[in-house]
Write a protein that binds this DNA or RNA. Structure first.
Ligand SMILES: [Mn+2]
Ligand SMILES: [Mn+2]
Ligand SMILES: [Mn+2]
Ligand SMILES: [Mn+2]
Lengths: 216, 216
DNA sequence: TAATAAATTTAGATAAGTCTAAATTTATTA
DNA sequence: TAATAAATTTAGACTTATCTAAATTTATTA
C-alpha cells in the first residue's frame, strides 16, 4: 500500500498539525531527522497520491484519506505500546522505539484482534488516546501542571515530553498516569511547584510542570 | 544491523540448506520470487559481510554468524505465529504472511519476553520447532505418512507443505497437529491411503500423505 | 521599499535492491 | 570431446529515498 517512509511522513504531518494549521518543510525535516530537500521530494510524492494538500513554499495539510492512514498508524503504535507494557511488562520509557517498528505491520485484522485481546484499551501507557477501529477517539481535557493555581488538584493523565529521560524521572518520583496530585505552593523566583501526593510532598521544576498533564 | 532483504536471503539460504549441501542461485531466485541476477548481487553483499561462503558458479553455504542470524529470524517467525494462533485466535493457515513481517521486528528483548509470556512453546502452529534464545532446538523424528506401512500408527506432528490450500484441507479433515492416525490400507493403483482416526475413517491421496508428517 | 536573511525548491549524485539482455561458465549429450 | 543446453554472472538501467550545493521564493528589517 504505502511505503514505510510514506507512513512516517504522514504520521509526522499529523502530529505537527495538532499545533499548527499548516505544516512546513523545515518542521518535518527536524522531526524526521532529515533534510528539507528530502522532505520536498516526499511531499511531491504524497501530493501526487492525494494524501496531502501541498502548495510549494506554503506547507502541507493532510487530506481526508491521508489523515485516515495517519490515525491508523497511530492506533497501531499505541496499541503495541499498550501490549508491550501490559502483557510483556516493559516500562513506559522502553516501548516507543519498538512501537515505531511495529506500527508498520500491515494487517488491520491483526491490530483489531490485538485490540480485542487487550480489552479495547482507551489510552496508551503515556496517556495518549488510542483510536478505535473506525479511527475515532476522544482526548480528555488536559492541562499542564504549570497552568493551574495553588490548591488545585488533579489526576496525572498524560505527558507532553515522551523522552526516555523525562519518563524515567517521572517514574522515579512516582508521578505516573492515574496518580492524584495537589499543587500546594508555587515558588515565585523560578516557578517551581510543590506538589502534595498521596504519601509525600515533592518539588518539581517549571520544565517538568510544563510537560506533565493533568485533568482537573 | 541487517536490512530486511538481507534477512530474507539468509533465512531462505537456511531453509534450502536443510535439503541440499550447497544452495544455488536459481534455488534462491525461485524461493524469493526474484531473478537470478538479483540473487547474485545480494550474494556478493552477504559474502562481503562474511555471512555466507560464496564461490561464484558453485553456490553458497551459511557461515556460523550467518546461520545464527537466520535461526534468530526463524525463532521470531515461529514465536509470532504461535502468538497469533494461541493469543489472537487466528487459524494456522492465516498466520504465515503476518509473521513474515513480524519476524523483522529487531528487538531480541521483545522476542524473549514474548517467549516467556507464552510459556516457552517448543513448536509453532505447524509443528515446526521454535529455537530458544540461544538458537537451540530439537526436531523430532518425523516421517511422511506416505512412508509408513499398513497398520502403523502415529501422531501428526508437522507438515511439509505450508500453503493455505493444504492447511485448510487438513483442518477440514481434522488432520491437525496432535491427532492420532493409523494407516489401515494403501490403494495400490494410486498409492492413496486409508487412515483410521479417532472418530472416523478417511482416504487421502499420495500427495497429501507425502506432505503430512507423523511421529511413530 | 530595497537589501538581507530565512525557508524552500531544484539540480545532480549516491546507495540499496531490483530488472532485462548479453556474456560467461559449467553441465549434458551426441 | 565438441556442440549444445542450462546455470550463473556481468553490464547497464530503473526506482526509492536519501544527500549536498546552488537557485529561487518568501519574510524580515534597515
Ligand atoms: Mn510512542
Ligand atoms: Mn505513547
Ligand atoms: Mn510461517
Ligand atoms: Mn510455521
Amino acid at each position: 500500500m504505502n511505503t514505510l517512509a510514506e507512513e512516517n511522513y504522514l504520521k509526522s504531518i499529523y502530529h505537527l498539525s495538532l499545533n499548527t494549521e499548516s505544516v512546513s518543510t523545515n518542521q518535518l525535516a527536524a522531526l524526521l531527522n532529515t533534510k528539507a530537500s528530502s522532505v520536498t521530494d516526499m511531499l511531491k510524492k504524497l501530493a501526487e497520491k492525494e494524501l496531502i494538500n501541498y502548495i510549494p513554499y506554503q506547507g502541507v495539510t493532510l487530506t481526508a484519506s491521508g489523515e485516515k492512514i495517519a490515525v491508523n498508524i497511530i492506533r497501531k503504535h499505541r496499541l503495541w505500546e499498550f501490549f508491550l507494557v501490559e502483557k510483556l511488562s516493559f516500562k513506559w520509557d522502553e516501548v516507543h522505539e519498538m512501537a515505531e517498528e511495529m506500527e508498520h505491520i500491515s494487517s488491520n485484522e491483526l491490530i483489531d484482534r490485538l485490540d480485542k485481546f487487550m480489552g479495547y484499551p482507551k489510552y496508551d501507557p503515556h496517556g495518549d488516546p488510542i483510536p478505535d477501529c473506525e479511527g475515532k477517539f476522544k482526548t480528555h481535557d488536559l492541562k499542564p501542571v504549570s497552568a493551574v493555581n495553588i490548591n488545585t488538584d488533579g489526576i496525572i493523565c498524560g505527558v507532553r515530553d515522551h523522552s526516555v529521560a523525562f519518563l524515567q524521572y517521572l517514574e522515579k518520583q512516582e508521578l505516573t498516569i492515574g496518580k492524584k496530585i495537589t499543587v500546594t505552593d508555587i515558588i515565585e523566583f523560578d516557578h517551581s511547584m510543590i506538589l502534595q501526593m498521596e504519601n509525600k510532598t515533592i518539588q518539581i521544576s517549571r520544565e517538568v510542570a510544563n510537560s506533565l498533564l493533568i485533568t482537573l
